[in-house]
């Protein structure tokens, strides 16, 4: 029984638990877990899709650059929600614990737990990349704010007449 087969057999279970764990960080997560339509349930749908993709990449030991699209799918959402940076990122880490737990519970495969070093290292890389992604998202957000102020969309409402602002500048 090799590790690759272990991952294959338990993929669904691990990813499900991972998704469940990640969604449990929301106040009212029942619906996020249950609804499968990605358009009716964007948080749940995107997180499920992205974690599934990311898991395959982690298992395969893919180039960390490939982690970026699924990470962005998750982190762009969590970066604008009510999480501290560590909270936004940390559910990614959980897959290490979940995988150990799942393998350990499977008597035939419990010895695989000792072979998880590479996988866990890949998770570490993904978590680090997620921090970069988090910062990128925040920076993009600030840029959006600045752009809005600059283009004048922010003076659609709530501001003085431009000629008055000009004379104030003089």
């Amino acid at each position: 029984m090799d590790l690759a087969e272990g991952f294959r057999n338990h993929r669904e279970k691990i990813v499900n638990k991972w998704v469940e764990y990640t969604l449990s960080t929301y106040l009212s997560s029942g619906f996020f877990l249950k609804e499968n339509d990605k358009f009716a349930n964007p948080v749940g749908g995107n997180i499920r899709e992205a974690l599934g993709r990311l898991f395959l990449l982690l298992v395969k030991g893919a180039d960390p650059k490939e982690f970026i699209p699924p990470l962005e799918q998750i982190i762009s959402i969590r970066a604008v929600q009510e999480f501290a940076p560590s909270q936004a990122v940390s559910p990614l880490n959980a897959v290490k614990h979940i995988t150990r737990e799942v393998f350990a519970a499977d008597k035939e495969r419990s010895q695989l737990v000792n072979e998880l070093y590479d996988f866990e290292f890949a998770v570490d890389l993904a978590v680090l990349a997620a921090f970069d992604m988090y910062m990128q998202c925040r920076e993009r957000l600030y840029q959006v704010r600045i752009n809005e102020i600059r283009t004048g969309n922010h003076i659609l409402a709530g501001s003085r007449c431009p000629s008055q602002m000009l004379s104030a500048e003089k």
Binding site: Y21, T25, S86, Q87, A94, H97, I98
Partner: peptide, 11 residues
Amino acid sequence: LQQLAKSVVQG
């Protein structure tokens, strides 16, 4: 894992 969850959820 529970500890991790705690730090995440209870902030």
